[in-house]
Amino acid sequence: MTVRVRTTLVAACAVALSAALAAPAVAVPATDGHDATRRALKAAVADGVPGVTATARDGHRTWSRTEGVGDLGTGEPRSERDRYRVGSITKTFVATVVLQLEAEGRLSLDDTVDEWLPGVVEGNGNHGDRITLRQLLNHTSGIYNYTADEEFARTHFARDGFLEHRYDTVTPRQLVAIATAHEPDFAPGTDWRYSNTNYILAGMVIEEATGRPYAEEVRRRIIDPLKLRATSVPGTRVSLPRPSSRAYSKLAESATGPTYDVTRLNPSMAGSAGEMISDSADLNRFYTALLRGRLLPAKQLAEMTTTVPAMPGASYGLGLIKRELDCGVTVWGHGGGIHGSSSEAVTTRDGRHALAFNFNGDWSGDSDAVIEAEFCGD
């Protein structure tokens, strides 16, 4: 997997709890402070993205915009209410649950993986007794990224493999076994490298700590309290809930060639690293609540927002990316990609200004340009 500021599940080579949150949104005209964003969305479609849906929230004002199509066959446009696969944005939900469990005294970020999952991370130089939960959440564990495995990529990302195996169920232990068949990338805590395996393990730890699947804990602790009605953890469900658009991929390294409808797939290949579904309004609500301290006590939120260097212009906390924009504005959030879907959700630290959007194609479109336009443009 290629790691950029827009962090995705799928490699490019493989392809409220407050009154403020509950207050009704007031729609504003597209020309009211979002001209640059609108131009950036149009540019993404001109660059080849089938369609894009975006929602920004600034205080109590909400602005939504769509461009392009949601269905290449019928020409049906995208909807502001589209549900879509959010990929690695799932990681922020998972990290939030782990930090809630720490606040409850049910685990510690300094616990080792072996304390919760004995014998799961071992062999080929992997040692679960040397990796902490904190290192899982901030990607300093050194554990190999299972989506970078060549056989996994051929089976799940390349055209022939995906079309044959798109409905296969893969278990978390199988995904971890793929990773531990490789030597670690580095000794725990000595470097940073994005690895989806970290969050597969984090989901397994949640289940061990609570006796319930991570998906149930996400629903119980985040989705239901925040009334995120468009957000779900699909498990092995292959379809998208309505309303939704089709999702498209080239299933190849090149942005040319045939376009495939990849809407239906079994997201267990992503699991707690990237399987969730949401919409733009829900993502804005979630990140606003999180950054305003409505999901975590101050101590845990401080831990989540303590970052390590990750990539130019950005650093990584616990399931949260801190990004410095060209105009000096700092935003927090996460990106996510999975077949046919590329998403971003970012929010200012005070939670006042939030943006979430989705491209329903995974081979083009400049998401960084959209973010810069919203927070730095006219």
Rank of each mutant, 00 (worst) to 15 (best):
N124Q: 12
A148F: 03
R134E: 15
A95P: 02
R106V: 11
Q100S: 07
R38W: 01
E67C: 00
V49M: 13
V49Y: 05
E115W: 03
A148R: 11
G51T: 08
H139N: 14
D110K: 03
R154Y: 14
S64V: 09
V98Y: 05
N126R: 13
V113E: 02
D71S: 02
F93A: 06
L41E: 04
I143L: 11
D149K: 14
E151M: 10
T55R: 09
R78F: 15
G51R: 14
S79T: 14
R61W: 11
G123A: 11
A95H: 04
A46V: 04
A103G: 13
L41M: 12
P77A: 03
V98N: 00
W116F: 07
N138E: 13
V97A: 02
A103E: 06
P118V: 00
R85E: 04
N138H: 15
N124A: 12
R85W: 12
I143K: 04
G51P: 09
Y146A: 10
N145G: 11
V120L: 07
E115S: 07
T112F: 00
R57Q: 11
D149I: 08
D110A: 09
R38A: 05
L99F: 03
E80N: 10
A103N: 01
D32A: 15
V121D: 01
E122R: 03
D58G: 03
T62C: 08
A95I: 04
G123E: 10
V113I: 08
V86P: 00
P118L: 08
T66G: 13
A103P: 01
V49W: 01
A56L: 07
D32I: 13
